[in-house]
């Protein structure tokens, strides 16, 4: 950047910082109240005593340990099934020529627009028919056939050089070995990118789990948090904020530690 452009660098820096502070403020406020006694909720002094009391109190008032376990089972289960199913589907789309290929791929793409999230009524009916209402499996099942995963992996598999596959075939590799030895290792960055997006999406998902669960043993964190914050109107704000931070903490900490990877992978998953 040359000439007059140099002079407004301080201005740009200032604008960037003002916006950053505005963006950080709501979270900073929640962090402040969560780590201080209730009497300091609106009383900002530097030497206010720090405390973990709010976290202990939230942890004791609701079965958060169970909610954490439910959410972890849920996100791992969804991710594993999504990846296995999408790998085979993407391989078929990327490598084989077969009857009905374009129609099937078109049907897959429909899900990018119409997600299971909005078909609440009929999906609930299906789950009731299967006898799965109020199970962790029911929360995850609608998302396991993921068009997004199939699409991303297909794009990646199509970039694998044909010569590489031919060479493996000459050495006697069958379709499965080829997939496992050649295609999957080359798609590692795609798997990582999709994994991050999938885990954060399902860690944060709310409406469908709210509808399909109704007991402590199946509820994920988001639903548990909303129940905790809503029913006990007597709960202090500092405790609710502590609970809120607690439920977001694993993703938030992972993000702060691996910031660059997060941003790059979200980008990779989004751009296609």
């Amino acid at each position: 950047m040359t000439g007059s452009w140099k002079y407004d660098r301080p201005l740009v820096t200032l604008a960037a910082w003002v916006l950053a502070l505005m963006w950080f403020l709501p979270l900073a406020y929640a962090i402040w109240t969560a780590f201080h006694p209730a009497s300091y909720e609106t009383h900002f002094v530097l030497w206010a005593p720090l405390t973990l009391e709010n976290f202990a109190s939230a942890w004791a008032q609701a079965p958060f340990a169970q909610y954490f376990l439910n959410t972890m089972i849920l996100v791992v289960m969804i991710l594993v099934v999504q990846i296995i199913l999408a790998t085979f589907a993407a391989y078929a789309f990327a490598v084989y020529e077969f009857a009905g290929k374009n129609i099937l791929f078109g049907l897959v793409l429909v899900q990018l627009m119409i997600m299971p999230d909005i078909l609440l009524v009929e999906n609930y009916t299906t789950m009731r028919g299967l006898g799965l209402v109020d199970t962790i499996l029911a929360i995850g099942l609608p998302y396991m056939g993921s068009a997004f995963a199939i699409f991303l992996l297909r794009q990646t598999f199509m970039t694998v050089p044909k010569e590489l596959a031919e060479a493996a075939k000459i050495e006697g590799a069958n379709a499965l070995t080829l997939l496992w030895r050649v295609y999957v290792p080359l798609a590692k960055p795609t798997y990582l990118a999709f994994g991050l997006v999938s885990v954060s999406a399902h860690w944060n998902n709310f409406i469908w789990p709210l509808i399909i669960t109704n007991s402590v043993s199946t509820r994920p964190l988001t639903v548990g948090l909303s129940v905790f914050a809503a029913t006990d109107s007597g709960v202090e704000w500092s405790v609710i904020n502590a609970a809120t931070l607690m439920t977001s903490a694993p993703l938030l900490i992972a993000f702060l530690l691996f910031q660059r990877q997060f941003v790059q992978n979200f980008m990779r998953a989004g751009i296609k």
Binding site: L85, A86, F88, A89, Y91, A92, F93, Y96, E97, F98, A99, G100, K101, L104, L107, V108, V110, Q111, I114, M115, P116, L119, V121, E122, N123, T126, L141, P142, Y143, M144, G145, S146, A147, I150, A175
Partner: peptide
């Protein structure tokens, strides 16, 4: 290859359609 491809697609397509196209 058509049979191969359909077999590989089957599980993903069944789940996908059961919770997107069918309910729609």
């Amino acid at each position: 290859t058509t049979i191969y491809a359909w077999l590989m697609l089957l599980p993903a397509m069944v789940l996908l359609m059961a919770f997107t196209h069918y309910p729609a």
